[in-house]
């Protein structure tokens, strides 16, 4: 496409696999810090187990998507062990962060799943959890920086993108928690009484993070509309171009507005734990996850390189 002496090339090399990887990176990255919060605050083993397992499974799934997206997956080990490793690349830094995070989220999950007969069992999760929390937040932030470091695509090269991805990762991490943890807490001995309180806490935070995400998305697209040609074209395609159906239906309505209605209209009003509350939480979680994934996909697909011919 030619416009004002600039050729626009739509980014078509990275698709839904990378979108899935970015989505899982954000989700898994922020699931463990929430679990760690409940460990530090109230020594809640069930919440820690749930959170670290979500993180561990999510990050392994994300890594799997990343590897199968490579054109030469058999050489994937070079990203960690290439003789000419480039530490200036965000992909190298990110690969190390994610690999370490996989190890540490697994280590953190270990004592909650397997019964370790050790007197230092409370010290171990505190230390490992602190490291894993740091790595988890770094993972979520890195998914934004991975795109932000690409100078050719001005739509991605903005400081707001990592923030948006972190908030979106937080809402996704929280919602999957809200779906899983009340059920698990109800089944766990001695933790039943916490179920409703924790669900309400998480869902309130989830609702706020969804609203923040919507606001950030508005700021992001609005500034893009006033940016250079590449940014403008990207924002146009999202707002009323070929990506508009994905954006308006899946990201805004399904991923944000309906879950907000469900959260504020129903689940946040119920102070007691019931099967309906859990069912609605699960539905809201699925919708938020769909929206969160589609957000990554839309932003990836809207990337446009502007090539000035002279």
């Amino acid at each position: 496409m030619m416009e004002n002496g600039i050729i626009l090339v739509w980014q078509h090399w990275w698709g839904s696999l990378i979108a899935g990887y970015l989505f899982l990176g954000g989700l898994a990255g922020l699931a463990l810090p929430i679990a760690y919060y409940y460990w530090i605050k109230e020594r809640n083993k069930v919440m820690s187990a749930v959170g670290s397992l979500i993180a561990f499974i999510g990050i392994i799934l994300g890594l799997f998507l990343l590897v199968i997206d490579l054109k030469r997956p058999e050489k994937a080990y070079l990203a960690l062990a290439s003789p000419a490793l480039n530490w200036k690349s965000w992909m190298t830094i990110g690969t190390y962060i994610i690999s370490l995070y996989t190890i540490f989220s697994g280590l953190y999950a270990l004592p909650f799943i397997v019964k370790v007969p050790s007197p230092r069992v409370t010290k171990y999760p505190t230390v490992i959890g602190a490291i894993a929390t740091f790595l988890g937040v770094a993972t979520a932030v890195y998914t934004g920086f991975l795109l932000g470091a690409i100078k050719s695509i001005t739509f991605w090269n903005t400081p707001i993108l990592p923030v948006l991805f972190v908030v979106s990762g937080l809402s996704a991490g929280l919602c999957i928690y809200c779906a899983v943890s009340p059920a698990v807490l109800r089944l766990s001995k001695g933790f039943e009484k916490h179920a409703a309180r924790i669900r309400l806490q998480l869902q309130r935070l989830d609702a706020y993070s969804l609203m923040t995400e919507l606001f950030l998305l508005f700021v992001y697209l609005d500034t893009a509309m006033w940016g250079d040609t590449g940014m403008k074209e990207a924002a146009k395609s999202i707002l009323y171009g070929n990506l508009a159906p994905y954006f308006w239906i899946l990201v805004v309505v399904v991923g944000t507005i309906i879950p907000l209605i469900l959260l504020f209209g129903y689940t946040l009003r119920i102070k007691e734990e019931s099967k309906t509350a859990i069912a609605i939480s699960v539905i809201a979680a699925i919708l938020i996850l769909i929206g969160s994934f589609t957000l990554r996909y839309v932003i990836l697909k809207a990337g446009v390189i502007q090539i000035s011919l002279i």
């Binding site: 090399w13 990275w14 997206d69 490579l70 054109k71 030469r72 997956p73 050489k75 994937a76 070079l78 990203a79 290439s82 003789p83 000419a84 490793l85 480039n86 200036k88 690349s89 965000w90 992909m91 190298t92 690969t95 470091a149 690409i150």
Partner: peptide, 29 residues
């Protein structure tokens, strides 16, 4: 060259940007 994680993209002493296919993993960054 700045973004290549494995150092497969490199610049020679005489300023030519080349790809070392032994290191390339095909990430398309």
């Amino acid at each position: 060259v700045e973004v290549c994680p494995t150092g497969a993209s490199y610049i020679t002493k005489d300023g030519v940007v080349l790809i070392n296919y032994n290191y390339c993993i095909g990430c398309r960054y």
